[in-house]
């Protein structure tokens, strides 16, 4: 049985939500529901649909509703103010700064974590590698540390007065004066990016490992017979084959990075100044920290941000379709 799971694309493909469009000519993968199966299909869908509607769709809808009210999150929704929250948001410089910071964060974060985790995934799936299990666990480990603890650790490690990293930099003579990673307005966001890469790395490593299954081992063997080295195998076999899946992982990585929150709270609190304010943190402070709460306003910020991202994703959808076309060409 295991034969099938290993010979197929397994976990890699599912990262793609638009898979339904793809139909292989020879075997119709999807069958039309008929007869008694109707009942089963309904039954199988029900648990997910119920929970999904109640805990994902409804909150989303509620957020949109709240965004039209002047509401502190408490008591009845009474003060309908139409688009006023949106108008205020559009003129709120802190929101736009947060917006910009979020995008910068997500872009750099994605640009760093994906190649690195891909390299790790490739290395850690080489059959010749010693100690695979151990290394995988090691690189996965940061993912399990609660974010409040991770924030504290890095506050201490990055500290300019006695932090380990500055100790190392100054004692090796790399820098003259300690660097204030979290206090410097140009470095703070970047420091957050690095720490978040460290934290989330394991997750993308696993995604990449899934993607790498698309590469039939036979191709490698053939290449080896031709005397290709590891680098050539990477460039000419691995990368082209995983490209379609890579695009989907890229989306996921970028969108998840846009949700950055916990590390900001624990490491910088948005500072220095407002240099590390990101949209989720902005929403959080508006809705729940600064009294009186502005829940309606925060909801408007969330909706505005969400819609913008969705638009971006729709544009990206074009690339998804191209990726699928590519994949078909490779026949995997």
């Amino acid at each position: 049985m295991a034969r099938f799971s290993t010979s197929q694309t397994a976990a890699a493909v599912p990262l793609n939500g638009r898979i339904k469009k793809r139909r292989t000519k020879s075997i119709p993968l999807i069958q039309q529901v008929a007869g008694a199966d109707r009942f089963w299909v309904m039954l199988f869908l029900l648990p997910f649909i119920i929970l999904y509607t109640s805990f994902t769709l409804w909150p989303l809808l509620a957020t949109i509703i709240y965004s039209f009210f002047d509401w502190d999150g408490n008591g009845p929704l009474e003060l309908f103010i139409r688009l006023e929250n949106y108008i205020t948001i559009a003129r709120d410089p802190l929101f736009w700064l947060s917006f910009r910071n979020t995008l910068v964060f997500a872009l750099i974060n994605t640009a760093i974590k994906l190649p690195l985790s891909l390299m790790a995934a490739i290395l850690l799936t080489r059959k010749w590698l010693w100690g695979q299990r151990l290394f995988r666990t090691v690189y996965f480990a940061p993912l399990v540390i609660p974010v409040a603890m991770a924030g504290l650790i890095f506050q201490l490690l990055l500290h300019p007065a006695n932090g380990a990293i500055n100790d190392l930099l100054t004692s090796t003579g790399l820098v003259q004066r300690p660097i204030d990673f979290l206090g410097n307005e140009r470095l703070a966001l970047l420091s957050l990016v690095i720490v978040s890469v460290w934290q989330i790395f394991g997750q993308y490593m696993i995604y990449w490992m899934a993607a790498l299954q698309n590469v039939p081992e036979a191709l490698y063997e053939a290449a080896e017979l031709d005397g290709a080295g590891e680098w050539k195998k990477l460039v000419h076999i691995t990368l082209p084959i995983i490209r379609p899946v890579a695009i989907i992982i890229l989306f996921l990585a970028f969108v998840n990075a846009l949700k950055v929150f916990g590390l900001v709270v624990t490491m910088t609190g948005g500072g220095p100044g407002f240099q590390t304010y990101v949209v989720p943190y902005f929403i959080y402070t508006q809705a729940l920290v600064d009294f009186p709460f502005r829940y309606g306003y925060a909801s408007a910020a969330a909706v505005l941000f969400g819609v913008t991202i969705l638009l971006a994703v729709t544009v990206q959808g074009y690339f998804v379709r191209r990726a699928e076309a590519d994949r078909k060409d490779y026949g995997v």
């Binding site: 802190l94 204030d180 206090g183 410097n184 307005e185 948005g270 500072g271 220095p272 100044g273 407002f274 240099q275 402070t285 920290v289 600064d290 009186p292 502005r294």
Partner: peptide
Amino acid sequence: VSNANSLTRNWEFIAMSEALLN
């Protein structure tokens, strides 16, 4: 007063901190 303070919460302290650090 609350509207003025809501423009940006803790504005003075945050802005001063940034100027102090840099």
